[in-house]
């Protein structure tokens, strides 16, 4: 199969459109886990980074990238992992934040900037969170840990709906 157009552009575009298996409203590019796409002839090397150390979605991302790019005609697809710099929720793009909101998830605020010892926080995590469904700021944290590694659980006092908030890291 011949790869049409500019192969570099194609590969990058194709890889960027692969979606996150747990939050399929986000592409890997919007989530900020797609770090590099490099084409040499009919070979592609894709660099991704895990959101959390134990993120179980990484294997599926790998499989999806390989499938999409081999289907497009690339002879060999290498998906490799970059651990540094560590993923930050700040890397979620504006388009990604809008997509989260549109699907009932609240987007993360700015990630904490840390150097040296991490200060103990005994109070509820202070966040500027609004209900993604009704927009009310009257929300209450139900759990700092949600159904996926990267989310916390909130409940809206106004419309009574629970929702996920993508955590700041």
């Amino acid at each position: 199969m011949t790869v049409l157009g500019s192969p570099v552009c194609d590969a990058r575009e194709l890889a960027a459109q692969v979606t996150d298996p747990e939050m399929p409203m986000l592409t890997l590019a919007d989530l900020g886990v797609l770090r590099e796409v490099k084409v040499e002839g009919d070979r592609v090397r894709v660099v991704i980074t895990p959101t959390y150390s134990g993120c179980p979605a990484l294997a599926t991302m790998r499989d999806d990238l390989v499938r999409v790019l081999t289907t497009a005609g690339y002879a060999a697809v290498d998906v490799v992992v970059a651990l540094a710099p560590a993923w930050s929720s700040d890397w979620i793009t504006e388009r990604g934040r809008a997509a989260l909101q549109a699907h009932g998830l609240s987007a993360p605020g700015p990630a904490p900037r840390r150097t040296g010892p991490v200060v103990l926080d005994l109070g509820p995590t202070r966040r500027d969170v609004a209900c993604p469904r009704c927009g009310s700021g009257e929300v209450v944290l139900a759990s700092e840990f949600g159904p996926t590694a990267c989310t916390a659980l909130y409940r809206c006092r106004a419309c009574a709906e629970p929702f996920q908030h993508v955590k700041e890291i």
């Binding site: 294997a59 790998r62 499989d63 499938r67 992992v81 970059a82």
Partner: peptide, 22 residues
């Protein structure tokens, strides 16, 4: 390299080297 197979379970069923390419 972690060139994968086509198994498409929810989280993949094959091993992935967590340090692939590092």
């Amino acid at each position: 390299s972690v060139t994968g197979d086509d198994a498409h379970w929810a989280f993949g069923t094959s091993f992935v080297d967590p340090l692939a390419g590092v």
